[in-house]
């Protein structure tokens, strides 16, 4: 398989209608589970979308750490002869977090506090994960022949270089 084909297949792609559906699912999930915040990230720690109360969090770091923790437990699982652990749960005094695998490339992290209970969150997130997976699979099917669209012009790297100069130039 050619490199660009491989890249095309590997890339996580969401269309707008997928995002609308995902948003709807996550909103419903938050309402039903009474959780504080739901974050959908890919396994590499990139945020796909987030819902709920996130003001106090440093999202970049949270997503990265979540993905790394998950990756670490996957290794751990492998050592035990499991493929991976599909759910992680970390309990705190006030806030807790549950991370569940959605499909095989995304993670649904839920932050919740004492207003709700783990059982409810787990039940609801299982349900939501299943539905999200359906959305992803639909999206996958659709992109067998993706529309070839040039989207980043020559200017992208030029413009980026300028910004890099601005940011690092005087420091170097």
């Amino acid at each position: 398989m050619k490199d660009d084909d491989r890249l095309k297949l590997q890339r996580l792609v969401f269309y707008k209608e997928d995002i609308l559906l995902i948003d709807k699912l996550l909103n419903t999930f938050l309402k039903r589970s009474q959780a504080k915040c739901a974050i959908l990230i890919d396994k590499e720690g990139h945020m796909i979308t987030v819902h709920g109360d996130t003001k106090t969090y440093d999202m970049d770091t949270i997503c990265t750490l979540l993905a790394s923790t998950f990756a670490a437990t996957r290794e751990w699982a492998r050592l035990l002869g499991e493929e991976e652990f599909s759910v992680l749960f970390h309990q705190g005094k006030k806030d807790s977090i549950q991370v569940a695998l959605v499909g095989d490339r995304t993670l649904l992290a839920v932050i919740f506090d004492e207003r709700t209970q783990l059982g409810l969150v787990r039940l609801m997130s299982n349900e939501t994960a299943r539905k999200l997976d359906e959305v992803f699979q639909q999206a996958e099917k659709r992109r067998v022949n993706p529309v070839e669209t040039e989207f980043l012009g020559e200017g992208f790297s030029d413009s980026a270089n300028k910004l890099l100069d601005d940011l690092f130039g005087e420091n170097s």
Binding site: F14, T149, E150, F151, A160, L164
Partner: peptide, 20 residues
Amino acid sequence: ALVLEFVSKQANMTGQPAYN
């Protein structure tokens, strides 16, 4: 700079259907 150049090339090479 290398990464962003790479990104830009890659995107143009593969097409980017993420947001039509």
